[in-house]
Design a protein around this nucleic acid. Structure first.
Lengths: 236, 236
DNA sequence: CAGTGGTCTAGACCACTAT
DNA sequence: TAGTGGTCTAGACCACTGG
């Protein structure tokens, strides 16, 4: 593991273990440099990483401070981890409704950037949290990249399999959010009434080399879905 | 302006002006170093900034590529700009319903981290896009930081005034999202039916020194609200 | 294995904050 | 004005990609 990542992890762990609150002042740069025996740039890179993750914020001329957000039960949209980490105290299960190799629709072709003869895996799942229906999910995987899936894999963490089983490196993703009304079929799946709200997230996942490999449409039970995002810097 | 920001801006402008598409390969680092006459670290910092903004992605051993996302009409949640930039082709107007100095509720005290005797500005607005109701917004500003507001300011861009009029530096923000059903009063304001979906965003804005100064609750017309987020890196 | 991006260093100098 | 984080350099070396 790289030095700056290692250091970032240690600082983050220290913050968690000591339950440091928002605004707590961390040691000055010089102290970190001495503690870890590295150059200023390396420490700076560690802290920039933590800042990007929303763990700290740095104030020039003043110091480095803990940033601690989080409301209970809210899931971060920026941490690519599905729900695994934010809801680790909750019981998460999945039921696979369908798993097939199909030809792409126009929408899928546009998003995965493939032609009509290209095979894709189609996966439809319902996910439960503490016994209640959390969401249902329709995913399309480019079969040239995600070469194999089966029911067992799809019942567990597909992304873990993609990373560890297939050795693929996931790079970045685009998320599209909106709210709408549930159709009768959707309401049935979620145990709600037609016309009730739904919180929809469409996502497009890319490998590090920029190839899109997964297009997913997830519809959440509005009663269960609370999300948060930490925004950094003035991106103006 | 800093070198690395300047260079980042020029590269971004070049991409926009030439309408370069996702996957387009940009010049190699060496070329940028020669072109701008700066050190490798500086160029790297420029490109890291552009990567953070979702403009490019870098692939070790391969190159630097344009990342171009965007669906028409979707608003980025990560660009702190209200709607100004993403919807610049649209007609945006506001109607101020209420502007008062009040004492904070418990919720506002918790979020702005202030006591019960502390004054806050309360602003309630409805915003329209192309004549249709986009959202209504209730905002609370810490009056010790945002010392003065009037109807005129509040009808325009409050944030521009905070930055330029008051000289405050906005640092970062937390967003909390959920969907729910409209109450009769809310439905009336948005021109929808009670029980219809609403897309809610609560946000908390901080100065660069970490002080929260604005807590806002925005309720969107679900028919008008489409958001996107670009996620970088494997923050695992 | 050549090309390309990423990490890391040591140090000079700059810019902001708080007192 | 002392303290603290930010920028920038020049260069060595590392790690990944793709033909």
């Amino acid at each position: 593991m790289l030095k700056y990542q290692q250091i970032a992890n240690e600082i983050e762990k220290y913050i968690q273990d000591h339950d440091l609150k928002q605004g707590y002042k961390l040691p000055v740069l010089e102290a970190f440099i001495a503690q870890y025996g590295v150059s200023k740039s390396t420490i700076t890179k560690s802290l920039d990483l933590l800042e990007k993750k929303g763990v700290v914020f740095q104030v020039r001329g003043s110091g480095i401070f803990v940033r601690r957000h989080k409301r209970e039960g809210y899931v971060s949209l920026l941490s690519n981890q599905g729900f695994k980490k934010d809801l680790e105290d909750f019981q998460l299960t999945s039921k696979v409704i369908e798993l097939n190799v199909v030809k792409p629709t126009q929408e899928v072709m546009d998003n995965l950037n493939i032609g009509p003869d290209h095979d894709v895996y189609y996966v439809k799942r319902v996910r439960y949290i503490n016994g209640e229906t959390l969401c249902f999910e329709e995913s399309y995987y480019n079969k040239e990249i995600v070469t194999y899936l089966n029911k067992e894999i799809v019942s567990e963490s597909i992304f873990q399999y993609i990373r560890e089983g297939l050795g693929l490196k996931i790079g970045f993703s685009d998320l599209f959010l909106h709210a709408d009304q549930l159709s009768p079929e959707e309401a049935e799946l979620l145990g709600l009434e037609p016309g009730n709200p739904k919180f929809c997230i469409e996502s497009l996942f890319y490998l590090t080399n920029g190839q899109p490999f997964d297009f997913s449409k997830v519809t959440y039970n509005y009663k269960q879905s609370h999300f948060f995002i930490q925004v950094n810097g003035q991106l103006i």
